Amino acid sequence: MEVRAFITPEDRLPPAALPGRARLRYGALARAVGIRRGGLSPARAGRLARAGTRPGGVCPVSADRAALVVPDGTVSGPGRVHGGSIEIEAAELMAAVPGTATASIAGLPADASA
């Protein structure tokens, strides 16, 4: 799993969790968060530090109350999830994260869907 962090105009941090080889569907992520696509910006180091993480170490579990984790629908299925510095069962991850909005945000490569 790959986790990418963004920031909204309201300073909300929506980390996006998707399978590692997938391409992020930015429009789908924006809709899941309830904003226009143009409102998503990559989270910079200062904002990540306020969330208790750092660039390259983003994981889907955050103590930041403004975080809304958006896992792709494939992440919420059975199995283990690896992201940032964590390894956890998908069901445990979904239970541990207070704010989630599961959405179809991943564009999987053709060979990965077979």
Rank of each mutant, 00 (worst) to 15 (best):
H82K: 15
I7G: 05
A28R: 06
R37Y: 14
I86H: 00
A17Y: 07
S76E: 09
A28M: 03
H82Q: 15
L18K: 09
S113K: 14
R25T: 02
A103N: 01
G46I: 09
R54A: 10
A66N: 09
A43Y: 05
R37T: 12
S104D: 10
G83S: 14
D64R: 01
I35K: 07
P109W: 02
A110W: 15
V69T: 14
G77A: 07
R31L: 11
A67W: 00
P71H: 02
G107R: 13
I105G: 00
L13D: 01
R50L: 15
P19D: 01
G77I: 00
G77H: 09
G57Q: 11
A101K: 00
G39H: 15
A22L: 04
P19I: 03
P78E: 14
V58A: 05
I35L: 05
V97Y: 04
A49T: 03
A5T: 05
S41A: 10
R25Q: 09
G46N: 06
L108C: 15
A32W: 00
P19G: 04
F6I: 13
V61C: 08
P60V: 02
G46H: 12
A114P: 12
P98V: 10
A32V: 03
V75I: 11
P55W: 05
T102A: 13
L48C: 08
G39I: 13
S113V: 14
P78K: 11
A45E: 02
R23G: 08
Y26G: 10
G73W: 09
A22I: 04
A17S: 08
I86A: 01
V58E: 11
R54M: 12
R65Y: 09
P55Q: 05
I86P: 00
P42C: 13
S76K: 14
A106K: 02
V70E: 14
I35A: 13
D64G: 02
E87S: 07
P71N: 03
A63G: 05
T8P: 05
P109A: 02
A22T: 03
G27N: 15
G34S: 07
R47E: 14
G77V: 04
P42F: 13
G20E: 08
P42Y: 15
A28V: 00
R50I: 13
A96G: 11
R21A: 08
A16Y: 00
C59F: 15
P9K: 08
G34H: 08
A91C: 07
Y26Q: 11
D72P: 00
A90K: 07
G73C: 10
